[in-house]
């Protein structure tokens, strides 16, 4: 353990420190947005958002290489694609409610297809694996600033709209009967999810984001009964799991994303099993 701490504070090894910092920063958004998505049961929507982000990443890589847009960081592309997907999905759920699941799979697959095509046509070798499953080698100081900025944006939007967002999640019809334009707040929720997904792309990758968004919040829900408490606990859980996973992956020399996810998922299954056992013991 002291070896791990030494690594974290070694000024020459920025890699792990950046990764852990990124995880801690992202944990704030994860806890907040994860709680919303779990409570509103829209984790499949976040799945679509996260996968579609590959389209933007692919385009950014292509544009950098072919058009020489060196400023076009892949995360900007991811951000753009995430926001576009959130707009599409919110439009579908407001105006064509019964087909929402179809639209989810369409957005999901389109984004991935677009991304893979752009990556295929990008000169030189780009490994889509690092975006799909995360690669902490990709995290630079610039990424940390971007993550902090997105974090601030998520926090700002949540604080501004918190009571209405919760009301819309809990009972949309009543929220509308209070004169609240619920479609707009649904969009805010999807935008928040998109921002959070983008934050996490470099750490766990777009395929594994869904679990990291949903599971800490689901775990927090077991121990809390109010939304605000759930968010705080979920944030703490997210931070623990991401840094725990990063350290584990460093110690065992394994890919980071899967380590984080297995740590979260393991705890989740454990809690489910304990719960099941305690309920069945009560019965008999």
């Amino acid at each position: 353990m002291s070896g791990v701490l030494a690594v974290l504070f070694d000024p020459d090894i920025t890699l792990i420190r950046y990764a852990v910092l990124a995880g801690l920063l992202a944990g704030i958004s994860l806890g907040i947005v994860g709680s919303f998505t779990v409570a509103k049961r829209i984790t499949s929507v976040t799945g679509a958002l996260s996968h579609s982000v590959l389209g933007g990443i692919g385009f950014a890589l292509y544009a950098r290489s072919v058009f020489g847009f060196s400023w076009f960081h892949p995360l900007y592309g991811a951000l753009f694609a995430g926001i576009l997907s959130a707009l599409i999905l919110s439009w579908v759920s407001s105006y064509a409610k019964e087909r929402e699941d179809t639209a989810i799979s369409a957005v999901w697959a389109t984004g991935m297809a677009v991304g893979l095509l752009f990556i295929a046509r990008t000169p030189g070798y780009v490994d889509p694996m690092s975006y799909l499953f995360g690669d902490i080698l990709l995290i630079s100081k610039q990424d940390l600033y971007l993550i902090a900025l997105l974090d601030a944006l998520v926090l700002f939007l949540t604080v501004m709209f918190y009571p209405k967002l919760v009301a819309v999640c809990f009972d949309e019809e009543f929220a509308r009967a209070r004169g609240i334009p619920t479609e707009r707040y649904h969009l805010v929720l999807l935008l928040l999810s998109a921002l959070t997904v983008v934050l996490l792309v470099s750490i766990v990758g777009i395929v594994l984001v869904v679990a990291l968004l949903a599971l800490p919040a689901a775990l927090a829900a077991q121990f809390t009964r109010r939304m605000t408490h759930m968010m705080v606990v979920a944030s703490v859980f997210s931070m623990l799991f991401t840094s725990g996973g990063i350290v584990t992956s460093y110690v065992l020399d394994l890919p980071t994303g899967p380590c984080i996810i297995l740590l979260v998922a393991g705890c989740y299954y454990l809690v489910l099993a304990t719960q099941y056992l305690s309920i069945s013991r009560k019965k008999y």
Binding site: A39, K164, C169, I180, M227
Partner: peptide, 16 residues
Amino acid sequence: FPMTVIDIVLTGRLGN
């Protein structure tokens, strides 16, 4: 859904 009774009654205070 993680809401207590008072949380729900409070949503009645919302407007646009």
